[in-house]
Structures are given as C-alpha cells and as structure tokens.
Simulated scan of single mutants.
Amino acid sequence: MTGTEFSVAVAGGALTVTRWGAADALPVLALHGITANGHSFARVAAELPDGLALLAPDLRGRARSAHLPGPYGLGAHVADLVAVLDAAGVDRTVVVGHSMGAFVACLAAVCHPDRVAGVVLVDGGFGLPAPPGTDIEAVIGPAMARLSMTFADRDDYRAFWQRHPAFAGRWNTWADDYVQRDLVGEPPEMRSSCVAEAVRADGAQVLEDPETLGAIRALPCPAWLMWTDRGLMDERPGLYTPERLAALDGSGVHLVALPEDNHYTPLFSSTAATVAAQVHAAVQQTVQA
C-alpha cells in the first residue's frame, strides 16, 4: 500500500507526513523511534481495517523533516503533532508510538488531553532507571553510530542494517523501505538523514527528564503498553520484563506481551497485525465508543 505525502507548517518550516488509508477514513497518529522515520509504520498501516487511516510524520530532525531547526526535544514533537492533527482536521484520536515515539505519545496525552483519546505504546513510554551520566549513544548502539558513518551506496546501507542483530534473518521489503527513506546524499558518500543534535536532545529527555518519565503515570486516557521479550540487539531480556513492569501496577496501563519479538520487529514482522488490531481496539474503545 502506497502512502501519500503532505507537508504541515510548523515552527521553522514544514514537517513531512505520510498518510495511508482512504480519504474518508478516521486517522490515527503514529510516532516513530529516536533515529527512525514515519515509514517504520507502513506495515502497521497496511494491517489496519478500511475504516482507519494512519498519519505518520517524519519527526523533526529525521528523514524528510531533517531540515527543521531546533530547539529539539520532546516538547517540540508534541507541538508538531498537534499541528499535524490541526492540518488533517482531526479533533481527537488515538496515538500509537514506538520507542521514543511512545514517550512523545504519553507527553502529548498529558499536555493535550482534549486531542488524545488513547495511546498504544510499542516497547517504549515507560522509563527505566539509568545510571547518572548515561548517554543515548550507549543505549541505542549501532543505530546512533551510523549517524557519523558514510555508505558507498544504497546496497551498502542495506547490508549495514541486515547485519544488525535485530534484523538478521528477518529482513523484508517493509524494513528495506524504512531504512532507504533514511538515506541521503550521493554515492560514494551517502549517510543517514538523522540530525545527531536532535537525537541527543530527545535521548537526554527520555533518559532523565522528570516530566517525560512521569507522563505514563499521569495519563488522562486509556493506554496499552505492548512490550517485547528481546531488546535492541535481539538480546534477552529486553527493555521490559514482568518484574520491571510491576512498577506500573495500579497505573491503569494495560500490558500486552509480544514474546516473539525484539525492540524493532513488531513494526515489520507479522506482529504488525497485532499492533494494528490493538490500535483498532483502542479506537473502538475511545473515539468510537
């Protein structure tokens, strides 16, 4: 399914958004991870029922929104997503976020409860204690390292990602479309579009900002956290475990385990259908109730 791109006026320029779905379908909003882009949600969009559309911006500092200037940070993403909803004529909807995007979704729900009816969080949104001074580069590993690398051509970049432990043996056309959208420049010196300054600013908030970390416990709307058994490098355990998630007892956040996946794969594997079904259920429970 091919998406349609459009631009939304935001502070400093225009944010690029991809829409999948019929013109008369109800849009939900999708927010990608810290070095990702909107096309990470293409397979989820393809799995949604006909009555739903999906709006996925390339967040400020990434892919076709890489030109947008700072100041960066999760508050800037929240302001940008409100602009997307306004431009699309959406008063209130469900927001699905992956990884860092899940933290943005929680913050948006707290700051704009009239616009966010519910949130679906995919392996993110719930902060875990990090040792003082922890840098985002140490957390996301190769995903950050590639920002300072150059690649001979598109095949070289594809091979880099195919070697990543999270994608090894799991490569498909959905993953390929996603990573190719990130690549800019000309051979033999192509590079990732992600702005390192934006990634560091966003990462610092995910790791240590009290408002960001506390948002999941202050949500004014229904929330579902879909967590994976494996981490960013396909290791066990992943970011979340039943023991770690016990800290959310009493918060009202519904937990959904994804035992066959790592941090990346729910958006690209057959599990995308499970994510789409959860988004649909959230819409039925909140927007269409």
Rank of each mutant, 00 (worst) to 15 (best):
Q284G: 11
A204N: 04
V84M: 09
R64K: 12
A45Q: 06
V119N: 01
D114S: 14
P57S: 12
I34Y: 03
P188D: 13
M233H: 15
T212V: 15
S148R: 15
R244M: 05
W161L: 04
Y264W: 12
A168Y: 08
R236P: 00
V139F: 01
G51T: 08
A247M: 13
A36Q: 13
A23D: 15
V256Y: 01
D114N: 10
V119R: 01
H164V: 05
M149V: 04
E243L: 03
R236Q: 12
G141D: 15
L232Q: 09
V279H: 09
Q285I: 00
M144A: 15
G13L: 05
S270F: 00
L232S: 05
G214M: 08
H280M: 01
A196I: 11
D182I: 10
A45I: 06
A46G: 14
A22T: 06
L207W: 05
D261V: 00
V94G: 06
R43T: 00
S148G: 15
A87E: 13
G70M: 08
H164E: 09
V8E: 07
T241E: 09
P27K: 04
D229N: 11
L26R: 09
T16S: 14
A42E: 06
A143C: 03
D229I: 00
L31K: 02
G238C: 04
P165F: 13
V122W: 02
G250D: 08
D155F: 01
P188V: 05
V275R: 13
R217E: 11
W161A: 11
L85T: 11
V96N: 02
A102I: 13
A223S: 06
T241R: 08
L85S: 12
E186A: 15
F103C: 06
G124M: 11
V90Q: 05
P259V: 03
A46E: 14
V287K: 08
I216A: 15
V90E: 05
A11T: 14
W224G: 00
P132T: 00
D80G: 08
D209C: 01
A30R: 03
S251F: 03
G252R: 11
R19P: 10
L26A: 10
D234R: 12
L267C: 07
D177R: 11
L245M: 06
P71E: 03
G70V: 01
A42I: 07
V119P: 10
V122Q: 02
A42N: 03
L225Q: 03
V96Y: 07
G70Y: 10
M1F: 02
P49D: 10
E47C: 13
V139M: 09
D209V: 01
